[in-house]
């Protein structure tokens, strides 16, 4: 595969990037531009918006319209862009702290509105830019600079949060599963509604080191060994509990159950992919109604 395919989407003069050796963020960046390249989108009609954190530095390397905004607020900025310019493809690049903690409110409300934005979340389970503090997705008992005795908070499942808030495309994968990642990003961009691609990525510098998971290759191997598709998880759980009617579970309930039954596994795959009109499409009708009202008041 030609490297040109990727480089033409990048601001080469901005490289080298700021990320640590072994960081997974570059993999997600590559999958994103790979997806955009295959979709043959007009680069001047793409806006990529990020917040603050390691993930959010991605926008600076992309040769589109790019906004590096405030911590947690990328989705709110992106909402303004998408609503004012429905012709543009709007992508948000964010992290687990950016989207799940400080920006949690914007995340759930954009999903609720089914706002046509594709959120690519770099979930490394830690605040990397500030030096390794626990985030809303840090697993319980994990170590971070602000959880030196082990984390006592329960983590958020960002995919489940998006599903239950109304997102119309939700997929989760890891940096090991590159082909799936690029494919999910393509589908997220194509979906006319709120999409989340949650990507579990390695932070060997902080999360891996503090939790003794090892170097970047060891972390990626962990993703390889423990990543399990929801379909596989479902069949495994059916074998474990033949008396439970898992076919009657919705995707959110299945994901919740999988965490309980298969606690070591990272449940990945495409969780939601449905067609539903969102705010931007519905607002077109508001425009028509308002113009009719204006015309009738003049008549």
């Amino acid at each position: 595969m030609s490297v040109e395919k990727y480089l033409k989407h990048m601001r080469i003069d901005r490289l080298p990037h700021v990320w640590c050796p072994g960081c997974g963020n570059g993999t997600i960046l590559k999958a994103t531009v790979g997806a955009i390249d295959e979709l043959e989108l007009d680069p001047s009609k793409i806006a990529v918006v990020s917040g603050i954190g390691c993930s959010s530095r991605a926008t600076g390397y992309l040769n589109y319209n790019t906004m590096h905004t405030l911590h947690g607020r990328a989705i709110a900025f992106a909402t303004g862009i998408k609503l004012s310019r429905p012709d543009m493809t709007v992508i948000v690049m964010t992290g687990d702290g950016d989207a799940g903690a400080i920006g949690g409110n914007h995340f759930i409300h954009a999903a609720r509105r089914n706002m046509d934005i594709s959120v690519i979340c770099f979930n490394n389970n830690i605040y990397g830019m500030t030096g390794g503090q626990y985030s809303p997705t840090t697993p319980e008992h994990s170590y971070a600079t602000t959880s030196p005795y082990g984390n006592i908070e329960e983590p958020f499942d960002l995919s489940r949060l998006a599903i239950t808030s109304g997102a119309t495309y939700v997929a989760r994968t890891t940096t090991y599963h590159f082909v799936a990642l690029q494919n999910y990003i393509k589908k997220a961009i194509t979906n006319k509604g709120f999409s989340l691609v949650e990507t579990i990525t390695q932070c060997p510098t902080y999360y891996g080191r503090y939790n003794k998971i090892g170097t970047a290759p060891e972390m990626i191997n962990y993703f390889k060994d423990n990543g399990m598709t929801l379909a596989k998880a479902l069949s495994t759980m059916k074998e474990m509990d033949p008396d439970v009617n898992y076919d009657g579970f919705n995707v959110n309930a299945l994901l919740e159950k999988a965490v309980e039954k298969l606690p070591e596994k990272l449940i990945i795959g495409e969780f939601v992919n449905k067609s539903k009109r969102g705010y931007v499409e519905k607002y077109e009708e508001i425009l028509d109604k308002a113009k009719e009202k204006l015309a009738s008041s003049k008549a």
């Binding site: 806006a47 918006v49 319209n65 906004m67 905004t69 405030l70 607020r73 709110a76 900025f77 992106a78 909402t79 303004g80 862009i81 609503l83 004012s84 310019r85 543009m88 409110n105 914007h106 409300h109 705010y279 607002y283 508001i286 425009l287 109604k289 308002a290 113009k291 009202k293 204006l294």
Partner: peptide, 27 residues
């Protein structure tokens, strides 16, 4: 909407302020 403009009631004032900056940068 009568003049083709867009209105949105955001989830809070932080989001409101950010949305107008995004909209302004996009024209």
């Amino acid at each position: 909407p009568k003049v083709g403009g867009k209105f949105i009631q955001m989830e809070d004032e932080i989001a409101s302020a950010c949305s107008i900056i995004g909209a302004s940068l996009s024209g």
